[in-house]
């Protein structure tokens, strides 16, 4: 242990330099000049307050094209400026992406959800970020200014780290809404009932055959049990081609618990997180079965 720092940095937001670009090119200029993209700011301002950086911010509130939120052919586009609150209060979106709404409703508090954005959640790339597993099961792709779109799974690289190139920015995320005979759900384990970070989390999307019980396709994603939210492909595949049974669910849960890669920290140990994954997979599937019964 060195004695590099003389003191603990006092918690204090530095005076920030703020820019108001009105179109994307201008925004990118600011980003190249060292500014960070400011959308909701709930993570960024905390970072600045606790670490003193960043000090330059380019706010996207005046860039209209970054506030798109619309559906076309089951694909939903969510712009960088869209708050979690906007997603939650949109009834069509709630039907199209229940897992994402489940997750969004667990982030922070009403106040925070009115400020924080879905893309902010993606950029923070926290292993415990609630919306990330849910986005993964909804086949999310992110779109950056350099105009290529990237699978979310490839975009998330490590805690706090994404594939975003220096000088590039995230414009929007697109995700696939549910089709007929599909349902999705997200659960997490926390110690408190609200205002908490996931200790482990699971999102699942199941597609049923027309018989209403055979699984046609499945996607499972896990949170807080690896450096990034991750897809559990083998676990998902194990469900396909048969109806859900106690045994198939247990088998799927076991596979998910095996392939995840949790760490131990002060919130929980690695083996406890594995256990949680096993339990949560079963719980989420049960919840999906309940939701299926509610389908029209």
């Amino acid at each position: 242990m060195g004695s590099s720092a003389s003191t603990i940095r006092p918690t204090q937001l530095p005076d920030l330099e703020l820019f108001w670009p009105t179109h994307i090119d201008e925004l990118i200029e600011h980003i190249k000049g060292g500014a960070k993209l400011l959308a909701g700011g709930t993570d960024l301002l905390l970072q600045a307050r606790n670490q003193g950086q960043p000090q330059k911010l380019a706010w996207i509130g005046n860039i209209e094209s970054m506030h798109n939120f619309a559906e076309q052919d089951e694909q939903w586009q969510v712009g960088a400026g869209i708050s979690l609150g906007k997603l939650i209060s949109n009834a069509a979106f709630r039907r199209a992406a229940p897992a994402i709404v489940d997750a969004a409703q667990l982030v922070g508090s009403v106040q925070i959800r009115n400020q924080a954005t879905l893309l902010g959640n993606i950029c923070s790339a926290s292993p415990a970020g609630d919306t990330l597993p849910a986005l993964l099961v909804h086949e999310a792709e992110v779109e950056t200014a350099k105009s290529h779109s990237l699978l979310l799974d490839d975009f998330l690289i490590a805690p706090g780290q994404t594939a975003l190139a220096p000088g590039d920015i995230l414009l929007s995320v697109s995700l696939r809404g549910l089709r007929a005979n599909e349902i999705s759900c997200y659960y997490r384990h926390t110690e408190r009932k609200a205002l908490d970070l996931a200790v482990a989390s699971v999102a699942i999307r199941l597609s049923f055959e027309d018989d209403g019980c055979t699984i046609a396709a499945a996607r499972i994603a896990l949170g807080a049990v690896g450096p990034t939210a991750m897809l559990a492909k083998q676990a998902a595949e194990s469900l396909v081609g048969q109806p859900l049974t106690k045994k198939s669910i247990a088998n799927c849960a076991t596979i998910a618990a095996e392939i995840c890669n949790p760490i131990s920290d002060f919130r929980a140990s690695a083996d406890y997180r594995r256990l949680l994954i096993r339990v949560l997979v079963g719980d989420v599937i049960n919840q999906i079965e309940k939701r299926v019964q509610l389908l029209p």
């Binding site: 703020l18 700011g41 106040q111 925070i112 009115n114 400020q115």
Partner: peptide
């Protein structure tokens, strides 16, 4: 953003004034 003591309504919606510039 954890305690809500700083809550204000912005265009009618509650937000944390400690996390707004």
């Amino acid at each position: 953003g954890d305690c809500g003591a700083c809550t204000v309504l912005v265009d009618g919606e509650p937000m944390c004034s400690c996390l707004l510039l």
